[in-house]
Design a protein around this nucleic acid. Structure first.
Lengths: 218, 218
DNA sequence: GTCATTATTCAACAGATGTTGAAAGTGACC
DNA sequence: GGTCACTTTCAACATCTGTTGAATAATGAC
């Protein structure tokens, strides 16, 4: 009879992406096998290749899936901050909040899928192998806009100092994403790696102060 | 006669560690094969196993080799900073310089071996798989002392803020170590990933300002 | 119901992987 | 010269790797 076409028919494509996302984030590209991905996704070994082609393309697909929605959120947050301050430039703190808020606050940060994605970003951003190519490809256009906003906010700032400051910013965020459990040990349980929302205000303060320190004297 | 026991007899052990260090740093633990290590070191495939046992132990050995000398340098730098300021607490900037100076300045930062080691630290520190265990094992005792010094310097500071600030610090340093080439793209060549010495002053300023921002009002 | 399209399974491939044990080489010391 | 401990080589092992092509099942339009 085939009463219903069975349940909603959870898309195997999505299941594969979810499994790959989690495993790549935990063990890196080379630490994951197609067999482990297929097993975790509950599909046949040949299916990942059928949908996404070779392993490398699957990795790209995982990275791309959430990059677009993320960039859209962050672009809107930045534009809102700039609008709210117009005709003046936005404050450094407002820009930092626009940069971090969509990442560290909101309902989605509780979803494991997003956490895995963040950890994957951390892996990619710190890898000499991937970092140069992939991060540039997916995120640089947006980041250029953030840096432009910071330049406007800070006035006639030293360019080298600006880029190295952003570099520190990026590193701090990346390590937060990685959720390595290190701060848990170090703080003897006071702080928790997985508490992105709790980290938010602290990171905002630290980074804002860092950028403010390069503002040229009035 | 045995004039000399021949030349220092370039140790194969060291050659293996050097090769493993470079390759692990570039491709991660799973991205490296014992064959590639042996080939790069110019030794037989079986030799790494003879000297260091299984692959995992070789990885540990690579990490351990430079950890001790590094910790000694940094401990001395910290003690010097504390002595110089006594009986007052050292300034935040002096502590940050003691933390970073031995890493980013000095003759050794030009040696490829040290750069590879730093990149390896970046890999380990950001990996959920290794980060928790290895970084704690090798570096936490020293880091506890740095955090103690910061606590003393900053006065009655909020503990959570202190640990999250250190977390930002660690992330910034780690990304600097990784030398991913990303800042080169972003700054259109103005800043160079491999210029650790050039990064030093910028990072010191950014991080010092970040820590100062959590100092409680007098 | 037919049939072309799509999705999924299965078995196998060629090559790579970590590890090992036995053999061969090396040099010091008596 | 002979013994012995330490190094180094060599060949092989069992297992795992990404990828593929053929076979089978499900799907949906007509």
């Amino acid at each position: 009879m085939s009463v219903t076409k069975t349940e909603p028919r959870l898309d195997r494509r999505a299941a594969i992406l979810n499994a790959a996302e989690e495993l790549f984030a935990k063990h890196g590209y080379d630490g994951v096998t197609l067999r482990s991905i297929a097993k975790r996704a509950g599909v046949d070994l040949a299916l990942p290749n059928y949908y996404f082609g070779p392993k490398r393309d699957l990795f790209d697909a995982v990275l791309m899936r959430r990059a677009e929605v993320l960039n859209a959120w962050r672009l809107k947050a930045l534009e809102d901050a700039l609008s709210a301050a117009r005709p003046n430039p936005a404050s450094v703190e407002a820009i930092v909040r626009a940069y971090l808020g969509p990442l560290l606050t909101g309902a989605h940060v509780a979803e494991p899928g997003w956490k895995h994605y963040y950890a994957l970003i951390a892996y990619v951003n710190n890898s000499p192998e991937w970092g140069g190519r992939l991060m540039t490809q997916f995120f640089d256009p947006l980041i250029d806009q953030f840096i432009d906003a910071l330049r406007l906010s800070l006035g006639d700032v030293d360019e080298k100092a600006l880029f190295w400051s952003y570099h520190c910013f990026s590193g701090a965020l990346t390590l937060t994403f990685a959720e390595t459990g290190r701060i848990d040990h170090l703080s003897k349980g006071l702080c928790r790696s997985d508490d992105l929302d709790g980290a938010y205000e602290h990171v905002v303060r630290f980074i804002t102060a860092g950028f403010e320190s390069i503002r040229p004297p009035a």
